[in-house]
Amino acid sequence: MAQSMADRAMQLLELTSLKDLAEVNSKEYVRWQSIKRGRARFAVDELEQLAERYPQFRWWLITGEVLPGIGQTRP
Protein backbone atom coordinates (compact mmCIF):
# COMPACT_ATOMS: atom_id res chain seq x y z
CA MET A 1 0.00 0.00 0.00
CA ALA A 2 1.27 3.47 -0.89
CA GLN A 3 2.18 5.94 1.82
CA SER A 4 0.06 9.03 2.25
CA MET A 5 1.53 12.51 2.13
CA ALA A 6 1.03 12.70 5.90
CA ASP A 7 3.01 9.47 6.32
CA ARG A 8 5.84 10.87 4.22
CA ALA A 9 5.75 14.17 6.12
CA MET A 10 5.93 12.28 9.41
CA GLN A 11 8.96 10.38 8.09
CA LEU A 12 10.69 13.71 7.42
CA LEU A 13 9.62 15.06 10.78
CA GLU A 14 11.29 12.09 12.47
CA LEU A 15 14.58 13.18 10.83
CA THR A 16 14.19 16.76 12.00
CA SER A 17 14.90 18.42 15.31
CA LEU A 18 11.91 20.44 16.46
CA LYS A 19 14.40 23.17 17.38
CA ASP A 20 15.16 23.51 13.66
CA LEU A 21 11.49 24.16 12.93
CA ALA A 22 10.52 26.56 15.71
CA GLU A 23 11.81 28.35 18.78
CA VAL A 24 11.55 26.16 21.88
CA ASN A 25 8.42 26.83 23.95
CA SER A 26 6.86 28.91 21.18
CA LYS A 27 3.36 28.30 19.89
CA GLU A 28 4.83 26.78 16.71
CA TYR A 29 7.11 24.45 18.70
CA VAL A 30 4.13 23.15 20.69
CA ARG A 31 2.26 22.63 17.42
CA TRP A 32 5.14 20.60 15.97
CA GLN A 33 5.28 18.53 19.17
CA SER A 34 1.58 17.78 18.84
CA ILE A 35 2.01 16.68 15.24
CA LYS A 36 5.01 14.51 16.09
CA ARG A 37 3.10 12.85 18.95
CA GLY A 38 0.08 12.17 16.73
CA ARG A 39 -2.19 14.64 18.53
CA ALA A 40 -2.58 16.95 15.53
CA ARG A 41 -2.56 16.64 11.75
CA PHE A 42 -0.28 18.38 9.32
CA ALA A 43 -1.59 21.59 7.79
CA VAL A 44 -0.44 23.00 4.47
CA ASP A 45 1.89 25.43 6.27
CA GLU A 46 3.76 22.61 7.99
CA LEU A 47 4.06 20.62 4.77
CA GLU A 48 5.46 23.71 3.03
CA GLN A 49 7.94 24.22 5.86
CA LEU A 50 9.20 20.64 5.52
CA ALA A 51 9.42 21.04 1.73
CA GLU A 52 11.53 24.18 2.20
CA ARG A 53 13.76 22.46 4.75
CA TYR A 54 14.28 19.41 2.52
CA PRO A 55 14.13 20.64 -1.10
CA GLN A 56 15.71 17.38 -2.33
CA PHE A 57 12.67 15.48 -0.99
CA ARG A 58 9.98 17.95 -2.12
CA TRP A 59 8.63 15.92 -5.06
CA TRP A 60 8.66 12.72 -3.01
CA LEU A 61 6.85 14.46 -0.15
CA ILE A 62 4.05 15.64 -2.45
CA THR A 63 3.72 12.67 -4.81
CA GLY A 64 5.56 9.72 -3.30
CA GLU A 65 7.68 9.50 -6.47
CA VAL A 66 11.41 10.07 -6.90
CA LEU A 67 13.11 11.79 -9.83
CA PRO A 68 16.83 11.15 -9.30
CA GLY A 69 17.67 12.71 -12.68
CA ILE A 70 16.78 16.12 -11.28
CA GLY A 71 17.96 15.50 -7.72
CA GLN A 72 14.57 14.58 -6.22
CA THR A 73 15.09 11.60 -3.93
CA ARG A 74 13.62 10.27 -0.71
CA PRO A 75 15.15 9.94 2.72
Score class of each variant (00 low, 15 high):
A2T: 10
A2P: 09
S4I: 01
S4R: 01
M5R: 15
A6W: 08
D7L: 01
R8L: 09
R8G: 08
A9Y: 02
L12H: 02
L13A: 06
E14Y: 06
E14P: 05
E14K: 13
L15P: 00
L15K: 14
T16Q: 07
S17M: 06
S17F: 00
S17D: 15
S17V: 00
S17I: 00
L18K: 01
L21T: 02
V24P: 09
N25A: 13
N25D: 14
N25F: 06
N25P: 01
S26T: 13
S26C: 12
K27D: 11
E28L: 06
Y29S: 09
V30N: 14
V30G: 10
V30L: 14
R31A: 13
R31Q: 13
W32V: 03
W32K: 04
S34G: 15
S34P: 04
S34E: 12
S34M: 10
R37Y: 09
R37I: 02
R37W: 01
R39Y: 11
A40S: 15
A40T: 08
F42L: 12
A43F: 03
D45L: 13
E46R: 09
E46P: 06
E46T: 11
E46C: 09
E46G: 11
E46I: 08
L47G: 04
E48L: 13
E48R: 13
Q49T: 04
L50H: 02
L50E: 03
E52H: 07
R53K: 15
Y54H: 09
Y54P: 07
Y54N: 05
P55A: 10
Q56T: 08
F57P: 01
R58L: 01
R58Y: 02
R58F: 03
W59E: 10
W60P: 03
W60A: 01
L61T: 07
L61P: 05
L61S: 07
L61R: 10
I62Q: 13
T63F: 05
G64Q: 01
V66W: 00
V66S: 11
L67R: 14
L67M: 09
L67G: 06
L67N: 15
P68T: 04
P68Q: 07
G69T: 03
I70D: 06
I70M: 13
G71I: 04
Q72Y: 02
T73Q: 06
P75D: 08
